[in-house]
Design a protein around this nucleic acid. Structure first.
Length: 158
DNA sequence: GCCAACGTTGGC
DNA sequence: GCCAACGTTGGC
């Protein structure tokens, strides 16, 4: 089983949106980056666990855990001209873009902020912390995963 | 196949 | 809102 981190803008689709979906499940559409698509297609498996990350907001950071409940399949929003992420080059017969379904496992008791994540030496190699990183989905090592889960119950580092 | 121009991401 | 970093596009 693998671990991942998935970014989302809370103003667009945050963890509270996911919590309100039927079965707390939603398809993760809008991926329009080849590197990320290939990871979804080749490496993401049902049952993999995900750190849900809020980006582009007041307090960016990890807010909870989700689970992959459906493996990569065509992102149908790419076929619809009315959709924000419509891509005329992706045809239903030959879909260019994929998505997965994620289900909320639980929301953290607190946000583990980006600022806090940066303060731990153990996490210094995390992809999300690397300069200029823009991938919306990144793999997370077991070491980092375990460390982050323990942080939830700690007092926030000053 | 190079690379400049452009668009997007996302922290600050 | 700014801007650095990066991906994509398209002319040549």
């Amino acid at each position: 089983m693998k671990y991942w981190l998935m970014k989302s803008e809370p103003d667009v689709f945050g963890i509270d949106h996911l919590a309100k979906m039927p079965k707390k499940t939603e398809h993760w559409d809008g991926i329009r980056n080849y590197q990320v698509r290939n990871m979804m297609r080749d490496e993401m498996k049902k049952g993999d666990l995900v750190l849900f990350y809020h980006s582009n907001c007041k307090e960016p950071g990890i807010v909870g855990i989700a689970r992959i409940v459906k493996e990569a399949y065509p992102d149908f929003t790419a076929f619809d001209p009315k959709e924000k992420y419509y891509d005329p080059k992706s045809e239903p017969e030959n879909p260019r873009w994929l998505m997965v379904d994620v289900q909320l496992v639980r929301k953290f008791k607190r946000t583990i902020s980006l600022q806090e994540l940066k303060s731990y030496k153990t996490l210094s190699e995390m992809i999300i912390l690397r300069r200029g990183n823009r991938l919306s989905i990144t793999p997370v090592s077991k070491k980092h995963w375990d460390f982050i889960l323990k942080l939830e119950n700690k007092n926030k580092k000053a």
